[in-house]
Every structure is written in C-alpha cells, then in structure tokens.
Amino acid sequence: MAKEMFVQLSDFQLFAKLTGENKGKPTVVMDAGYGDSSKAWDSIISDISMLTEVLIYDRAGLGKSEKSSKSRTSSEMVKELNELLYRAKIKHPYILVGHSFGGVNARLYATEYPNEVSGLILVDSTPEDYREKFLPTMSKEFREAYNKQFVYEGNYEEFMGSLKQVKESRRKLNVPLIVLSAGKKAHYSEESQKLWNEMQKEILEISSNSEFIVAENSAHYIQNDEPEVVIDAIKRMIEKF
C-alpha cells in the first residue's frame, strides 16, 4: 500500500511516497537524477516495494514539492532529506539508491550521516571529477548542450559546487557499495565510454566493501533500460542486512 505525504520543512513542503512494508530490513530511500521527479523510479518501484519499505520523494522545486529558498547544492538537499526522513518518522538504517546527480547526494548523505546508512547503490552516478576529467573529452556540441541543461533545479555553478562538496568531504565509508555503470551511453565514442566506466570504477574506492557492475545494454537510465540490474543490486544489498 502506498502512502503519499507532504512534509513541512522550514518554508516549503516536500512530497514523498512510502510503499511496501518494513519486514525488519532497511528502508530503501531513492534519490533521482538532476531535474527528475520521483517518477524516474516508476519502472522498478513495485518490484522493490515487494522486498521492503521504499521511500521516493521529489526534491524541492521538482514534481509535487514546493521550492526552497536555500541554495540548490547537495549539502542543502542532504539536510532536507534528513529532515524529511525525521519528520516522516522513517527510521534508519537506510539503503540509499541514487541515480546520476542523486548519486552525488547519496554519497554525501552517507558521509554526513554514516550511522544511518547500511548500504549505498549508485546508478550511473555523476563522478566528482566530471568537469575536469570527462567533459573536455567530449565534442563542443555535447559540452554546450550539457551546460544549457541546468535550468530545472539549481544552476551550473550550484551543480559543480555539489561535485566539489562531495569531493572535499570524501572519506572511506564503512558501508557496502554497489556501483552500476551504463555501458551504452548515448552520443559517447568508444574512448568516452571507456573513460566513463573507468571513472565509475574509481568511485569504488570510497568503500572498503564495494562491487562494480556494467549494465552493458543501458544508456544513462539503467532503471528503464535494464531494470532487473538495479532491482537485483537492491535485492542483494537488502540480503546483506
């Protein structure tokens, strides 16, 4: 059974939806990519909610959530998520699942609140050195299109500020980590695809217990292209508990 709620934070409300039931396992908390609402998880949510309780939510200014007056950087979003979970009385431990930019938030959350997190799954997450290491290898058209997309939540500076925050706070985490990398990215040359997978693999270093999986037939939205890969990763993470 799904329970929808609007949770009041300082000067705005966040929309969240809780599905599934707590069977003594961690609650799965899912954070979508940049500009995406919680609907980004529609393809897998019913499968996951058969396993345990799942919380999806819309970050401020997206989907059904109101806008926040605070800056749109990961550190603010992580505080807001923490407050949302507290006010909605969702008890930890959590398994955090972050797609793309949501993976940046999930990493920072696990760093800021290590005692609340029992597992971390990053779904084609944005690497911290994306601007320095990856963007320069792409075509001028790709870079221009990339820079123009930052109009949905937070601007280019705030997004890059978030990558800086996750880089500066980086330390070894004592939680199991699964990194899923998309193996068939749109508009990527063979070299770019190889570099992308390598940069995804480097994220493994943040945990002493990590696993790397390439979703060979997936573009950026692995949860849509190969949902079973994401579902299986979450299932195995739940079983570790």
Rank of each mutant, 00 (worst) to 15 (best):
S162F: 04
D58M: 07
E157V: 15
R131E: 15
I178N: 04
P26I: 04
F6Y: 11
Q13V: 02
R171Q: 10
K23G: 09
M1Y: 03
F241A: 13
G154E: 03
A32Y: 04
Q8I: 09
D58N: 07
P26F: 04
V7R: 01
L85I: 03
E168Y: 03
E128K: 12
F159L: 05
M30G: 08
G63C: 09
D42P: 11
A145F: 04
E4W: 00
P26G: 08
S37N: 08
V229D: 04
M199K: 02
A219N: 12
N197P: 03
H92Y: 07
E144V: 11
T19N: 13
K185V: 12
P176H: 05
S75M: 14
I203D: 04
R170H: 07
M160C: 12
Q149A: 14
R72H: 11
T126R: 00
K235D: 11
S139D: 10
V28Y: 04
G61W: 01
S208A: 14
A60T: 02
T126E: 01
N147D: 10
D232R: 10
I178M: 02
S218V: 11
A32D: 00
K89N: 15
G183S: 09
I206F: 04
I234Q: 01
A110V: 11
G154Q: 07
K89M: 11
R107E: 13
S69L: 11
P93H: 07
I238Y: 09
S207W: 00
G24K: 00
L180Y: 02
T27A: 10
T137I: 07
I203H: 05
H92P: 15
E239P: 06
G119M: 01
K25A: 14
M30W: 01
R87L: 14
I203E: 14
G61N: 03
T73H: 06
R143N: 10
D232Q: 14
E132D: 12
Y188G: 03
S162I: 07
T27R: 00
Y57F: 13
E205R: 00
I90F: 01
T19P: 07
V97Q: 00
S118P: 10
F6P: 07
T126V: 15
D124N: 10
E116V: 09
K91N: 15
K184T: 05
N115V: 03
H92W: 01
T52M: 06
V166C: 08
Q193V: 13
L204P: 12
A88G: 09
S169H: 13
V151I: 14
S69V: 14
S207Y: 02
E66R: 03
V229H: 02
S68I: 06
Y221C: 14
L163W: 00
N105S: 10
K167C: 05
K25P: 07
M50L: 15
D225L: 06
G35A: 08
L195T: 09
V229L: 05
I238A: 06
I48R: 01
S65K: 00
A110C: 10
K140N: 06
V117T: 12
L18E: 13
D124L: 08
I178W: 00
K70R: 15
Q13S: 12
T19R: 09
Q165C: 03
E226K: 02
M237A: 14
G24F: 01
G63W: 02
A219L: 06
G61A: 05
L122G: 12
E132H: 09
M30E: 06
V117H: 03
N224D: 15
S68P: 13
E157S: 15
L51G: 13
T111V: 11
M1F: 03
S10K: 10
S169A: 15
Q8P: 12
E21P: 12
E80Q: 14
N197H: 06
